[in-house]
Design a binder for these strands. Structure first.
Lengths: 240, 240
DNA sequence: TGTTATTGTAACAGTTTGTTACAATAATAC
DNA sequence: GTATTATTGTAACAAACTGTTACAATAACA
């Protein structure tokens, strides 16, 4: 393995074979719900940021570190949502292509062509505060709107689908607050985020009352950058 | 490997290394919420029913078949809820003991002593309609009330804890109906099950109205085996 | 035939949710 | 300045839902 280009070693002995992880990183730009997708050098292959588990680290450690390396984003709060273990979820041809186009020896990395079971995680991050950086294996890392995804490798589309489903289910419990919006936001932005995630629409007044009733919001100063109308308040999430 | 005693082979080449699964099988006997626990021959080791994934079967197939083999129960609807990958979750000493007490060669089965990541599933079954049978490796398979569990191997107590948490969260959505109660049951039995699972108590009248309002119940004939009082109706779950 | 315990419902109050209405404004146009 | 315009924050009312109490309708048994 070319350790100049790839400081992270991929020696078979260092890793647990057959085990991978993948991540679905959600961001909201105020209008659309987006996720981060990697494109591999000269392959036209698109994939979720993922990686492998070293023998001497826990799954959780591997995922946190691995996803941060591959996306260039720190302080991710990743939540495990499902493990994928279908027989359809290996594509040795694609993996060969990725190795080849990165100048890596296929024989030496043969274990990567084998069957993998993947533990999938998702995270919500504030679109405006991050600057994703592709890792050496990948050409680019880009935000894609959920309805404009490129065709993804293997079962990665299924993983995205399931991630969104889980996000919808957990929306009210705890999550949205964490990271998806800027630190301060208007009620309208909050409603937009909810609507994009759930795919539903809400009545403005009922939504506002419901949100305020949760007692999870703190009201701040008004936001005066708007148009010819009453200025909205800014809110932030109360830390519990 | 002694294939006389153990018709299921455990040859390293047949399985995906480092990958295991475990199952939490819930049953309700009308009074207590219970789970199935295996005890290994002559070891005093208690564990959840689990197994490994063959190279030529999907994770889901392996789990369904594996759990049915180890418990003697057919037609389980298993739901994946979390994957456990901590560094604390191997106990090669215990595994050696299990192999030894079953007359299995430790050297030949060395891969079983290595680190495993385990995908955990749970199932709800009708206590009265099953007759669990231990597999050859285990001495016994028994129902244990959740508050009277024996000490479990490795991180299996954590797995049980998380399974119960998931069960509680999903209770209203879809699950309870599936299998936890007999085909026909009284409102009181339903309420008992809910209370044991959630750990809460409910007012009889409000509970009854809430359940009937879901439109998921079909009312049948009355049950006359009771005491000196008005006979309750029997209900069953509507298949959606 | 009365007694007893439990069940199925109704009635009322209190709470939450859906909808409509309207006053309070920021920016802009005059 | 003053009127105009779009949007926001709330209040008001109705409808739906929940919690609680009350009570009639029983099965079994004495």
């Amino acid at each position: 393995m070319n350790t100049d280009k790839h400081p992270q070693s991929l020696n078979k002995e260092d890793y647990l074979s057959h085990i991978a992880f993948d991540s679905v990183i959600f961001g909201f730009n105020g209008k659309d719900l987006k996720i981060l997708i990697l494109e591999y050098h000269n392959t036209g292959l698109f994939a979720l940021p993922g990686g492998f588990v070293r023998r001497n680290e826990s799954l959780a450690e591997a995922v946190t570190k691995g996803v941060e390396e591959r996306t260039g984003i720190d302080d991710l709060y990743l939540e495990q949502f499902q493990t994928f273990g279908g027989l359809n979820r290996s594509d040795s041809k694609a993996m060969e292509q990725i190795l080849e186009m990165n100048g890596l020896d296929i024989k030496a990395n043969e274990w990567l062509l084998d069957r993998f079971i993947s533990i999938a995680y998702y995270a919500l991050i504030n679109f405006e505060e991050v600057n994703p950086i592709p890792d050496p294996l990948a050409d680019s890392i880009e935000w894609y709107s959920l309805d404009e995804l490129p065709p993804l490798m293997m079962d990665h589309e299924e993983i995205v689908h399931k991630a969104l489903e889980t996000l919808r289910e957990n929306l009210d419990k705890k999550l949205l607050g964490m990271n998806l919006l800027p630190a301060k936001f208007t009620m309208k932005e909050l409603q937009n985020a909810y609507e994009k995630i759930t795919g539903e629409t809400f009545k403005r007044t009922a939504f506002q009352r419901r949100m305020l009733a949760t007692k999870n919001l703190v009201r701040h100063e008004k936001l005066f950058t708007g148009g010819a109308h009453r200025a909205p308040y800014l809110y932030s999430f109360k830390i519990k």
